[in-house]
Amino acid sequence: MALKDIKARIDSTKKTMQITKAMEMVSAAKLNRAEQNAKSFGPYVDKIQEVVGSIASGSNAKHSMLLTRPVEKTGYFVVTADRGLAGAYNSNILRHVYRTIQERHKSADEYALIVIGKVGVNFFKSRKMSILDSITGVADQPSFAEIKAIASKAVGLYADGTFDELYMYYNHFVSAIQSDLTEKKLLPLTDIAATKSKSSYEYEPSEDEILEVLLPQYAESLIYGALLDAKAAEHASRMTAMRNATDNANELIGQLNLSYNRERQAAITQEITEIVGGVAALE
């Protein structure tokens, strides 16, 4: 390779490295915020869980969202990112969901998809799988109001019998370098821990009417919680992916520098040989 070409490659790799480094730092900052969001959401969902648990355990209250019914159609709620450059973040989920659907269902009538994120929407569209509802362009630090519409729609579709169970797929944030693919059965709410709370409540007006308000609110908050979790995982995996890219660029620049120097030395040596040869020819 000519000297000029190597020089050009070194320059372009350096520029790429600047970008990946900046993206890494941006993602790190966003990850911090995302973790804080998840933390401030904690008390809310804990409290709801406690109240729901104490109603569900202490009574014979029956609500359609608590009862398992024969499954004719399954809903899938898939959380992906809007952009790539996040390592295997999107492909992990999408591959898993796609495979699960292929295994479980024979026809397209047996499942329904609800998708968050552009990457997921494009993936299912290109495979001609119909998407019931989707939302893209969710902010990096989503507020509850932003996803309220899609969450309550998902819960509503279960309530009106469009599907009989709802699974949620997202990446659970473990640490900056690890996130776990999570499959969670959202509806019916079968795994409400029957917490024995200290106080047995009076219900005003009645348990059933409270469940009517409480359970959809609970299910929606679970969706929101999953989204916050997924956002943290997204920022983390983007940060890691960008760090890897920066490291790779560094290594590549090292190699290119080495071959640049070698090439330059070879050119000098050749020039000297030519001069010496020329002088020898004159004598």
């Binding site: 109240v51 109603i55 106080s199 047995s200 409540y201 009076e202 219900y203 005003e204 007006p205 009417e209 409270i210 009517e212 308000v213 409480l214």
Partner: peptide, 19 residues
Amino acid sequence: KAKSGELGILPGHIPLVAP
């Protein structure tokens, strides 16, 4: 304001849940 009407809560109220 609960669905069933106004609620006034003073310290020491019995445990209650209301929409």
